[in-house]
Write a protein that binds this DNA or RNA. Structure first.
Lengths: 150, 150
DNA sequence: TTTGAGTGGTTTCATGATGAAACCAATTGA
DNA sequence: TCAATTGGTTTCATCATGAAACCACTCAAA
Protein backbone atom coordinates (compact mmCIF):
# COMPACT_ATOMS: atom_id res chain seq x y z
CA UNK A 1 0.00 0.00 0.00
CA UNK A 2 3.02 2.21 -0.22
CA UNK A 3 2.98 5.36 -2.24
CA UNK A 4 3.21 3.98 -5.76
CA UNK A 5 6.69 4.09 -7.27
CA UNK A 6 7.53 4.70 -10.89
CA UNK A 7 11.00 3.26 -10.75
CA UNK A 8 10.65 0.75 -13.55
CA UNK A 9 8.61 2.96 -15.86
CA UNK A 10 9.96 4.14 -19.19
CA UNK A 11 8.35 7.60 -19.06
CA UNK A 12 10.81 10.27 -17.96
CA UNK A 13 8.01 12.43 -16.64
CA UNK A 14 7.01 9.69 -14.24
CA UNK A 15 10.60 9.21 -13.15
CA UNK A 16 10.98 12.90 -12.48
CA UNK A 17 7.85 13.03 -10.42
CA UNK A 18 8.99 9.99 -8.52
CA UNK A 19 11.87 12.08 -7.24
CA UNK A 20 10.49 15.62 -7.26
CA UNK A 21 6.77 14.97 -7.12
CA UNK A 22 6.11 15.95 -3.59
CA UNK A 23 4.86 19.28 -2.62
CA UNK A 24 7.91 20.80 -0.96
CA UNK A 25 10.86 19.53 -2.95
CA UNK A 26 10.45 21.89 -5.86
CA UNK A 27 9.89 24.83 -3.55
CA UNK A 28 13.10 24.01 -1.73
CA UNK A 29 14.93 23.88 -5.05
CA UNK A 30 13.35 27.17 -6.04
CA UNK A 31 14.61 28.76 -2.84
CA UNK A 32 18.03 27.22 -3.35
CA UNK A 33 18.10 28.84 -6.78
CA UNK A 34 17.30 32.14 -5.12
CA UNK A 35 20.42 31.70 -3.02
CA UNK A 36 19.09 30.23 0.21
CA UNK A 37 21.46 27.75 1.80
CA UNK A 38 20.80 27.30 5.48
CA UNK A 39 18.25 25.12 7.20
CA UNK A 40 16.81 28.10 8.99
CA UNK A 41 16.55 30.15 5.82
CA UNK A 42 14.50 27.47 4.10
CA UNK A 43 12.36 26.99 7.15
CA UNK A 44 11.60 30.66 7.44
CA UNK A 45 10.94 31.11 3.74
CA UNK A 46 8.68 28.11 3.33
CA UNK A 47 7.00 27.99 6.71
CA UNK A 48 7.29 24.21 6.58
CA UNK A 49 7.50 22.13 9.73
CA UNK A 50 11.07 21.44 10.68
CA UNK A 51 10.75 17.68 10.69
CA UNK A 52 9.35 17.74 7.17
CA UNK A 53 12.06 20.10 5.99
CA UNK A 54 14.70 17.87 7.50
CA UNK A 55 13.21 14.88 5.74
CA UNK A 56 13.01 16.64 2.39
CA UNK A 57 16.54 17.98 2.56
CA UNK A 58 17.78 14.47 3.23
CA UNK A 59 15.77 13.21 0.30
CA UNK A 60 17.19 15.84 -2.02
CA UNK A 61 20.71 15.15 -0.83
CA UNK A 62 20.20 11.41 -1.28
CA UNK A 63 19.09 12.03 -4.85
CA UNK A 64 22.07 14.25 -5.56
CA UNK A 65 20.02 17.38 -6.11
CA UNK A 66 21.46 19.19 -3.12
CA UNK A 67 24.75 18.62 -1.42
CA UNK A 68 25.91 19.46 2.07
CA UNK A 69 28.84 21.82 2.37
CA UNK A 70 30.62 23.50 5.25
CA UNK A 71 29.26 26.99 5.74
CA UNK A 72 30.70 29.60 3.46
CA UNK A 73 30.90 32.21 6.24
CA UNK A 74 33.45 30.23 8.25
CA UNK A 75 31.04 29.17 10.99
CA UNK A 76 30.70 25.54 11.99
CA UNK A 77 27.24 25.12 10.47
CA UNK A 78 26.57 23.42 7.20
CA UNK A 79 24.84 24.57 4.04
CA UNK A 80 22.73 22.95 1.38
CA UNK A 81 23.68 23.91 -2.16
CA UNK A 82 22.43 22.76 -5.53
CA UNK A 83 24.39 20.22 -7.52
CA UNK A 84 24.61 20.31 -11.29
CA UNK A 85 21.66 17.93 -11.39
CA UNK A 86 19.71 20.30 -9.17
CA UNK A 87 20.54 23.35 -11.25
CA UNK A 88 19.26 21.50 -14.28
CA UNK A 89 15.78 21.77 -12.82
CA UNK A 90 15.82 25.43 -13.76
CA UNK A 91 13.70 25.00 -16.90
CA UNK A 92 11.12 23.04 -14.92
CA UNK A 93 10.75 25.92 -12.51
CA UNK A 94 10.64 28.45 -15.32
CA UNK A 95 7.86 26.48 -17.00
CA UNK A 96 5.90 26.22 -13.78
CA UNK A 97 6.43 29.91 -13.20
CA UNK A 98 5.08 30.83 -16.58
CA UNK A 99 2.03 28.66 -16.23
CA UNK A 100 1.30 29.89 -12.75
CA UNK A 101 1.77 33.52 -13.69
CA UNK A 102 -0.62 33.15 -16.59
CA UNK A 103 -3.32 31.01 -15.02
CA UNK A 104 -3.22 31.27 -11.25
CA UNK A 105 -3.51 35.00 -10.61
CA UNK A 106 -6.37 37.44 -10.70
CA UNK A 107 -6.14 40.42 -12.96
CA UNK A 108 -3.80 42.99 -11.42
CA UNK A 109 -2.76 40.78 -8.53
CA UNK A 110 0.93 41.35 -7.80
CA UNK A 111 3.28 38.56 -8.78
CA UNK A 112 6.99 38.13 -9.33
CA UNK A 113 8.45 38.36 -12.81
CA UNK A 114 11.69 36.88 -14.11
CA UNK A 115 14.02 39.36 -15.75
CA UNK A 116 17.09 39.00 -17.86
CA UNK A 117 19.60 40.48 -15.43
CA UNK A 118 21.72 42.06 -18.15
CA UNK A 119 18.96 44.10 -19.74
CA UNK A 120 16.32 44.21 -17.02
CA UNK A 121 13.69 42.96 -19.44
CA UNK A 122 11.32 40.03 -18.90
CA UNK A 123 12.63 36.78 -20.32
CA UNK A 124 11.09 35.25 -23.41
CA UNK A 125 8.49 32.54 -22.69
CA UNK A 126 9.80 29.00 -23.12
CA UNK A 127 9.28 27.57 -26.56
CA UNK A 128 9.57 24.05 -27.85
CA UNK A 129 11.35 23.91 -31.18
CA UNK A 130 12.19 21.21 -33.67
CA UNK A 131 15.77 20.39 -34.62
CA UNK A 132 15.41 22.77 -37.56
CA UNK A 133 14.00 25.53 -35.37
CA UNK A 134 10.30 25.30 -36.19
CA UNK A 135 8.04 26.17 -33.26
CA UNK A 136 6.24 23.05 -32.00
CA UNK A 137 3.01 22.54 -30.14
CA UNK A 138 1.62 19.46 -28.42
CA UNK A 139 0.00 18.10 -31.55
CA UNK A 140 3.21 18.46 -33.55
CA UNK A 141 5.00 15.92 -31.39
CA UNK A 142 5.08 12.18 -31.00
CA UNK A 143 6.62 9.81 -28.47
CA UNK A 144 8.70 6.76 -29.28
CA UNK A 145 10.57 4.24 -27.22
CA UNK A 146 14.31 4.60 -27.37
CA UNK A 147 16.17 2.38 -27.94
CA UNK A 148 13.45 0.72 -30.03
CA UNK A 149 12.28 -2.66 -28.79
CA UNK A 150 13.36 -5.60 -30.88
CA UNK B 1 -3.07 21.61 10.30
CA UNK B 2 -4.33 21.38 6.77
CA UNK B 3 -1.98 20.84 3.89
CA UNK B 4 -0.38 24.26 3.59
CA UNK B 5 -1.86 26.47 0.89
CA UNK B 6 -0.03 29.02 -1.23
CA UNK B 7 -3.07 30.95 -2.28
CA UNK B 8 -1.92 34.35 -1.14
CA UNK B 9 1.70 33.99 -2.21
CA UNK B 10 3.19 36.14 -4.96
CA UNK B 11 5.41 33.42 -6.42
CA UNK B 12 3.87 31.82 -9.49
CA UNK B 13 5.79 28.61 -8.90
CA UNK B 14 4.11 28.22 -5.54
CA UNK B 15 0.70 28.93 -7.05
CA UNK B 16 1.26 26.33 -9.73
CA UNK B 17 2.28 23.72 -7.22
CA UNK B 18 -0.73 24.60 -5.13
CA UNK B 19 -2.88 23.35 -8.00
CA UNK B 20 -0.71 20.75 -9.69
CA UNK B 21 1.66 19.81 -6.92
CA UNK B 22 0.26 16.45 -6.04
CA UNK B 23 1.67 13.31 -7.34
CA UNK B 24 -1.02 12.19 -9.74
CA UNK B 25 -2.30 15.39 -11.32
CA UNK B 26 0.58 15.91 -13.72
CA UNK B 27 0.53 12.26 -14.73
CA UNK B 28 -3.16 12.52 -15.53
CA UNK B 29 -2.45 15.60 -17.63
CA UNK B 30 0.38 13.77 -19.35
CA UNK B 31 -1.96 10.93 -20.23
CA UNK B 32 -4.60 13.36 -21.40
CA UNK B 33 -2.00 14.87 -23.73
CA UNK B 34 -1.34 11.39 -25.06
CA UNK B 35 -5.00 11.19 -25.99
CA UNK B 36 -6.54 9.32 -23.06
CA UNK B 37 -10.04 10.47 -22.23
CA UNK B 38 -11.99 7.89 -20.31
CA UNK B 39 -11.97 7.14 -16.60
CA UNK B 40 -11.02 3.56 -17.27
CA UNK B 41 -8.21 4.51 -19.61
CA UNK B 42 -6.59 6.70 -16.98
CA UNK B 43 -7.10 4.08 -14.34
CA UNK B 44 -5.52 1.38 -16.42
CA UNK B 45 -2.62 3.55 -17.53
CA UNK B 46 -1.76 4.91 -14.11
CA UNK B 47 -2.69 2.01 -11.87
CA UNK B 48 -4.08 4.50 -9.40
CA UNK B 49 -6.86 3.59 -6.99
CA UNK B 50 -10.22 4.52 -8.41
CA UNK B 51 -11.26 6.70 -5.51
CA UNK B 52 -8.09 8.71 -5.82
CA UNK B 53 -8.48 9.03 -9.57
CA UNK B 54 -12.05 10.18 -9.13
CA UNK B 55 -10.91 12.78 -6.62
CA UNK B 56 -8.11 14.04 -8.84
CA UNK B 57 -10.27 14.27 -11.93
CA UNK B 58 -12.77 16.35 -9.98
CA UNK B 59 -9.94 18.55 -8.76
CA UNK B 60 -8.64 19.08 -12.28
CA UNK B 61 -12.12 19.83 -13.58
CA UNK B 62 -12.73 22.25 -10.72
CA UNK B 63 -9.52 24.07 -11.64
CA UNK B 64 -10.46 24.23 -15.30
CA UNK B 65 -7.62 22.02 -16.46
CA UNK B 66 -9.88 19.24 -17.68
CA UNK B 67 -13.46 19.47 -18.77
CA UNK B 68 -16.17 16.85 -18.96
CA UNK B 69 -17.64 16.17 -22.36
CA UNK B 70 -20.12 13.65 -23.73
CA UNK B 71 -18.28 10.70 -25.22
CA UNK B 72 -17.03 11.19 -28.74
CA UNK B 73 -18.00 7.66 -29.81
CA UNK B 74 -21.72 8.20 -29.32
CA UNK B 75 -22.03 6.17 -26.15
CA UNK B 76 -23.65 7.58 -23.03
CA UNK B 77 -20.39 7.79 -21.07
CA UNK B 78 -18.47 10.97 -20.54
CA UNK B 79 -14.91 11.95 -21.33
CA UNK B 80 -12.29 14.14 -19.72
CA UNK B 81 -10.47 16.41 -22.13
CA UNK B 82 -7.88 19.12 -21.62
CA UNK B 83 -8.91 22.75 -21.65
CA UNK B 84 -6.73 25.48 -23.07
CA UNK B 85 -5.35 26.03 -19.57
CA UNK B 86 -4.55 22.34 -19.35
CA UNK B 87 -2.83 22.23 -22.71
CA UNK B 88 -0.66 25.12 -21.59
CA UNK B 89 1.01 22.75 -19.16
CA UNK B 90 2.78 21.21 -22.13
CA UNK B 91 6.09 23.03 -21.52
CA UNK B 92 6.05 21.94 -17.88
CA UNK B 93 5.80 18.32 -18.94
CA UNK B 94 8.45 18.76 -21.59
CA UNK B 95 10.81 20.24 -19.02
CA UNK B 96 10.14 17.42 -16.58
CA UNK B 97 10.63 14.92 -19.37
CA UNK B 98 13.99 16.35 -20.30
CA UNK B 99 15.21 16.40 -16.74
CA UNK B 100 14.01 12.91 -16.04
CA UNK B 101 15.47 11.53 -19.26
CA UNK B 102 18.82 13.04 -18.46
CA UNK B 103 19.07 12.33 -14.76
CA UNK B 104 16.78 9.48 -13.79
CA UNK B 105 17.83 6.64 -16.08
CA UNK B 106 20.72 4.25 -16.11
CA UNK B 107 22.94 4.13 -19.13
CA UNK B 108 21.20 2.23 -21.92
CA UNK B 109 17.93 1.87 -20.02
CA UNK B 110 15.05 2.23 -22.47
CA UNK B 111 13.05 5.42 -22.23
CA UNK B 112 10.61 7.33 -24.39
CA UNK B 113 11.79 10.17 -26.58
CA UNK B 114 9.79 13.10 -27.92
CA UNK B 115 9.97 13.56 -31.67
CA UNK B 116 8.95 16.33 -33.97
CA UNK B 117 6.15 14.50 -35.79
CA UNK B 118 6.83 16.20 -39.11
CA UNK B 119 10.47 15.19 -39.40
CA UNK B 120 10.69 12.29 -36.99
CA UNK B 121 13.67 13.90 -35.25
CA UNK B 122 14.06 14.51 -31.52
CA UNK B 123 12.91 17.94 -30.44
CA UNK B 124 15.40 20.58 -29.38
CA UNK B 125 15.91 20.85 -25.61
CA UNK B 126 14.05 23.75 -24.01
CA UNK B 127 16.06 26.93 -23.77
CA UNK B 128 15.46 30.09 -21.83
CA UNK B 129 16.18 33.16 -23.88
CA UNK B 130 16.21 36.89 -23.27
CA UNK B 131 13.97 39.25 -25.18
CA UNK B 132 16.82 39.80 -27.63
CA UNK B 133 17.42 36.08 -28.04
CA UNK B 134 20.47 35.59 -25.87
CA UNK B 135 20.59 32.20 -24.16
CA UNK B 136 20.06 32.57 -20.40
CA UNK B 137 21.03 30.46 -17.45
CA UNK B 138 19.96 30.63 -13.82
CA UNK B 139 22.58 33.17 -12.86
CA UNK B 140 21.64 35.46 -15.73
CA UNK B 141 18.18 36.06 -14.31
CA UNK B 142 16.64 38.08 -11.54
CA UNK B 143 13.18 38.24 -9.97
CA UNK B 144 11.17 41.36 -9.30
CA UNK B 145 7.73 42.03 -7.98
CA UNK B 146 5.26 43.20 -10.57
CA UNK B 147 3.54 45.57 -10.30
CA UNK B 148 6.23 47.16 -8.11
CA UNK B 149 5.19 47.94 -4.55
CA UNK B 150 4.73 51.58 -3.81
C1' DT C 1 34.38 30.63 31.34
C1' DT C 2 30.02 30.70 32.20
C1' DT C 3 25.65 31.96 30.24
C1' DG C 4 22.04 32.75 27.33
C1' DA C 5 20.42 33.12 22.74
C1' DG C 6 20.37 31.10 18.21
C1' DT C 7 20.88 27.09 15.03
C1' DG C 8 19.76 22.67 13.45
C1' DG C 9 17.74 19.31 14.06
C1' DT C 10 14.75 14.70 16.36
C1' DT C 11 10.78 12.85 18.82
C1' DT C 12 6.04 12.50 19.83
C1' DC C 13 1.48 12.53 18.81
C1' DA C 14 -2.95 13.97 16.61
C1' DT C 15 -4.99 14.36 12.20
C1' DG C 16 -5.40 14.22 7.25
C1' DA C 17 -4.44 11.83 2.82
C1' DT C 18 -3.79 7.58 0.41
C1' DG C 19 -4.74 2.99 -1.28
C1' DA C 20 -7.04 -1.60 -1.53
C1' DA C 21 -11.11 -3.78 -1.68
C1' DA C 22 -15.89 -4.17 -1.62
C1' DC C 23 -19.91 -2.40 -3.25
C1' DC C 24 -23.29 -0.33 -6.47
C1' DA C 25 -25.95 1.86 -10.30
C1' DA C 26 -26.18 2.75 -15.07
C1' DT C 27 -24.90 1.27 -19.75
C1' DT C 28 -23.86 -1.87 -23.23
C1' DG C 29 -23.45 -6.08 -25.89
C1' DA C 30 -25.01 -10.71 -26.75
C1' DT D 1 -33.26 -10.22 -20.88
C1' DC D 2 -29.16 -11.10 -18.76
C1' DA D 3 -24.33 -10.78 -17.98
C1' DA D 4 -20.37 -8.10 -18.39
C1' DT D 5 -18.35 -3.49 -18.57
C1' DT D 6 -17.98 1.21 -17.12
C1' DG D 7 -17.68 4.65 -13.83
C1' DG D 8 -17.75 5.57 -9.98
C1' DT D 9 -18.67 5.76 -4.10
C1' DT D 10 -17.99 3.86 0.50
C1' DT D 11 -15.34 1.80 4.02
C1' DC D 12 -11.48 1.01 6.52
C1' DA D 13 -6.54 0.19 7.54
C1' DT D 14 -2.22 2.40 7.00
C1' DC D 15 0.98 6.05 5.73
C1' DA D 16 2.49 10.85 5.57
C1' DT D 17 2.07 15.41 7.33
C1' DG D 18 2.28 19.11 10.63
C1' DA D 19 2.53 21.34 15.26
C1' DA D 20 4.79 21.44 19.29
C1' DA D 21 7.98 20.02 22.55
C1' DC D 22 12.44 18.75 23.27
C1' DC D 23 17.49 18.53 22.83
C1' DA D 24 22.44 19.08 21.56
C1' DC D 25 25.66 21.98 19.69
C1' DT D 26 27.63 26.64 18.46
C1' DC D 27 28.59 31.30 19.21
C1' DA D 28 28.91 35.91 21.23
C1' DA D 29 29.07 38.61 25.12
C1' DA D 30 29.88 39.38 30.09
Amino acid sequence: MKRTSMEGVACPVARSLDVMGDWWSLLIVRDAMLGLRRFGEFQKSLGVAKNILSQRLKHLVAHDILEVQPASDGSAWQEYVLTQKGRRLFPVLVALREWGAEHCFEEGEPRTVMLDAAQGLPVKPLELRAADGRLLDLQDTRLVREPPER
